[in-house]
Every structure is written in structure tokens, then in C-alpha cells.
């Protein structure tokens, strides 16, 4: 219907009619009400985000004026420079924290995407004994993403002697259930006849998975990448890692932030730096995310 606007034969009157049709069941009063609510709820959501960006650019003297201002008078990048300076004074070189974070994020995300899509394929497209039970377990474990099982997980990891290694951070990320869940729901809508044709051509299930299924579910693995990455990137690893040289980037930043109220500006700048990689990834993958999440429902 959008293209009709460009149609030269269409008179302005007709266009008005079409336009009205697009706004079906949308009254002016309702629009205003929705706008008002959106403004109210939206500013509740957005203002703290804006405020933390503003804080990062405030010079020290502006952070401590009364009454505090929501805006910045003389924006400065001093806070960002200070991160670098303070980072130099840490016991372990700053680049080491950064390397740890990048390495763990990369390995965890890659492993998660590969291994959970490998498991998602039979769950979505094969018929075998125990399939329903396994998927039910995964769905239930979505409940425990909030850290409820962190303590017993720590006990299990101690028994496996992987505390204080990269494995303690990478392996749980790979085993997270969110990625498998999304991937399985997305794969279910793939066309069966395509897989059947490949089987007739003599491909085995692994070849089908690599050559046919994986290229078709690109939106789903892009989505999985953002979820997995977001999870690892913000992880402090505090519970599983005690060796200073294996700690992650957020730990280094929180050490800088822990300098107290005098470092308020630096702390805000550090949070902003932390936010940049996931935001960039979110913007790149957001249309894939929408496509994937459309299938994310739980079917009873």
C-alpha cells in the first residue's frame, strides 16, 4: 500500500483515503494519549541513560555544584583521558584485562553459537526418543538465568578444578540455554523438503547441518551472538576468578570506579566505554534480532 503514493495516476483524494486506511482504528485523542504515556514512560527509561552520558563529559567542578544540573556547561574529555592514566597505575597491565575480556567473549560467543546450534538442529527437525524432555529442561532452565544457581555451580566447578582458569568463564557461557532456545524455535520454520532433498542427495546429518541449515539461520546466530556477547562482556567473573591477571575488563573498570566520590566522572566515562561494543553490535544485528525474536515464543 505504501507504493501507491508514488503512483502518478492516483489523485490526492485517493491518496488521502489510503492514508486514512493505514491509520485504521487510530483516533487523534488516542494518539495524543499514547504520545503522553510514551513521553512519560520513555523519559523514565531514557533520562538515566542520558544522564550517565552527560556525567561522563562533566568536568570535576560541575559534578559537585548545588543544585546539580542535568546538562553539561563545559564538556570535557578529561574523564576519558583519566581512565587511561589510572589504568596505567594498576598492578596488572590494563591491556591484560582487555585481552582477557576480548578472548573470553570471543571464545564463549563462538562456542555458544556453534555448539548450541548443533544441538538445536536435531531438537527442531529430528524425531527421537527423549526429545521433548530435553527441550523441556532447556525451557525450564531459562528461569535460572538470573544467577540463582551461581553458588552450586561454583561448588561443581571447584570439584572440576577449573576455578581460576579461562574455562570457568567460557564453558558456562557455551552451556547457556537462551541461545539454544532461540535457535531451536527459529529452525523449526525451515522447510522440511529442503532437508529431505539433501538426504536423498546422500548428505549425512552433519553435512546438512553445516551446509544447509547454518547458512539459512543466519539471523538466529547473529541474535545469539549479541545475547552471548552481552552476557560475557558484562561478566565480572568475580566468583570464579581470583587470580588478578585473569580478571576481566569490568573488574579493572570497577577498581577505577572504587576510588570513591572523587572519581564520579571517571566512573561514568568508564561505564560509557563499556557500553560501546554491545551497542555497536546491537545496531548491526537489530533487524536479525527482530526476525529471530518473532519465533521466540513458548509453545505449550
Amino acid at each position: 500500500m505504501k507504493s501507491t503514493v508514488k503512483n502518478p495516476k492516483l489523485s490526492l483524494v485517493d491518496w488521502w483515503k489510503y492514508r486514512k486506511k493505514k491509520d485504521l482504528n487510530r483516533s487523534k485523542g488516542g494518539n495524543f494519549l499514547v504520545f503522553l504515556m510514551l513521553l512519560l514512560l520513555g523519559s523514565f527509561m531514557a533520562l538515566p541513560v542520558v544522564y550517565s552520558i552527560v556525567q561522563a563529559f562533566k568536568p570535576m567542578e560541575e559534578i559537585f555544584i548545588f543544585p546539580p544540573r542535568f546538562t553539561v556547561q563545559n564538556p570535557t574529555v578529561k574523564n576519558f583521558k583519566l581512565i587511561g592514566q589510572l589504568a596505567g597505575s594498576l598492578w596488572v597491565p590494563f591491556s591484560r584485562y582487555l585481552f582477557n575480556s576480548v578472548f573470553v567473549s570471543f571464545a564463549g560467543t563462538l562456542g555458544n553459537v556453534l555448539i548450541s546450534s548443533m544441538a538445536a538442529y536435531p531438537l527442531a527437525k529430528h524425531d527421537f526418543v527423549g526429545k521433548k524432555v530435553l527441550f523441556k529442561l532447556v525451557t525450564l532452565s531459562l528461569l535460572f538465568t538470573g544467577g540463582v544457581i551461581e553458588l552450586p555451580r561454583y561448588i561443581v566447578m571447584t570439584k572440576l578444578h577449573i576455578i581460576n582458569t579461562y574455562w570457568a568463564l567460557i564453558l558456562p557461557t557455551i552451556a547457556s540455554s537462551m541461545g539454544l532456545f532461540l535457535m531451536k524455535q527459529f529452525m523449526e520454520q525451515l522447510n522440511n523438503s529442503l532437508l529431505e532433498a539433501a538426504r536423498i542427495d546422500g548428505m549425512n546429518e552433519f553435512q546438512i547441518f553445516i551446509r544447509i541449515v547454518m547458512p539459512l539461520v543466519k539471523p538466529a546466530w547473529l541474535t545469539q551472538i549479541i545475547f552471548a556477547f552481552q552476557g560475557v562482556w558484562s561478566m565480572t567473573g568475580g566468583n570464579y576468578i581470583y587470580r588478578e591477571d585473569l580478571k576481566l575488563f569490568p573488574t579493572a573498570l570497577s577498581q577505577i570506579q572504587s576510588g570513591g566520590i572523587a572519581r564520579a566522572g571517571v566512573a561514568a566515562a568508564a561505564s560509557l566505554v563499556m557500553l560501546i561494543p554491545p551497542v555497536i553490535m546491537f545496531l548491526i544485528t537489530q533487524s536479525s534480532i527482530m526476525e529471530t525474536m518473532a519465533h521466540a515464543g513458548i509453545k505449550e
Binding site: P48, S234, S271, L275, P278
Partner: peptide, 8 residues
Amino acid sequence: LSGNMYMI
């Protein structure tokens, strides 16, 4: 999306 933005 951010790990610790709530500190604001």
C-alpha cells in the same frame, strides 16, 4: 545491554 549502567 550494559552490565553496570544502573550505577548511575
